[in-house]
């Protein structure tokens, strides 16, 4: 308990520092101005949520093949935490888009992908709440999770062909793209901090799921007696 409190405080300090760096150390972007600062949180959250869904996919596969309860706990934890980050992305995105594009929302590839991704994992969590028996719940939600994850690249490319007006990738894009060094430091730190937050939330949620499972086991045992 003490250890996790210390970790949480450490992480809070790290996020505070990265926020300070993003606002005061990194220069103000020329064409967008101050509103560009939201990118540090927006992009890092998006990457973190993709990481979380990747972990969920791994856990789903692992459950289907090994049937370890632990894999199921990891899967549901990763889906919930990933969804939390997706919500951050979907809130910060329109806040940036309104002054820069003049609209809150547009149906472009990355926006729509994020939205559909959120919907798919909401369905995943809903499905879990609709199946009582633990083993069935774990298996069928894992199978749905696998199908959902396979859909991600297809959603992305279909919408990309359909239309795209999102800013082209600036971090790993072609020549002329790239970040000012101080911006890059702020980005990387923010990403690191959010990944730390992901790990912290994931382990807390995982412990909760493990406790829930043991409560469920105890209740069943009591019913049998």
């Amino acid at each position: 308990m003490l250890k996790s409190t210390v970790k949480a405080i450490g992480l809070f300090v790290l996020i505070a520092i990265t926020a300070y760096l993003a606002f005061y150390y990194a220069p103000i972007e020329k064409s967008m101005g101050v509103i560009q600062k939201i990118f540090y949180l927006h992009v890092s959250s998006a990457l973190t949520s993709f990481l979380a869904f990747g972990i969920c996919f791994y856990a789903n596969l692992r459950y289907v093949f090994t049937r370890q309860q632990k894999a199921d706990w990891l899967g549901v934890s990763a889906a919930e935490v990933g969804l939390a980050f997706i919500v951050v992305v979907l809130i910060t995105g329109p806040i940036w888009a309104k002054p820069v594009w003049g609209i809150w929302w547009t149906w472009d590839a990355r926006l729509t992908l994020t939205f559909v991704l959120g919907l798919l994992y909401i369905s995943y969590l809903l499905l879990r709440s609709m199946i009582e028996e633990p083993e069935k719940r774990a298996l069928f939600s894992a199978l749905f999770g696998i199908f959902a994850f396979l859909d991600v690249p297809l959603v992305y490319f279909s919408i990309r062909w359909w239309r795209t007006q999102h800013p082209q990738p600036v971090i790993l894009g072609g020549p002329g793209s790239g970040l000012e060094p101080r911006m890059r430091v702020s980005y990387l730190l923010m990403w690191g901090a959010l990944t730390g937050l992901l790990i912290l939330l994931l382990s807390a949620r995982y412990r909760l799921e493990a406790l829930r499972a043991s409560v469920e086991d105890l209740r069943r045992e009591a019913e049998v007696r």
């Binding site: 729509t112 369905s123 499905l127 609709m130 199946i131």
Partner: peptide, 20 residues
């Protein structure tokens, strides 16, 4: 077929996946 509220669950699972 294994879930409660199955009539609602199938569209919820299927429709977002069918976006492409």
């Amino acid at each position: 077929a294994q879930a409660r509220m199955r009539e609602l669950m199938l569209p919820l699972l299927l429709l977002p996946l069918l976006t492409p």
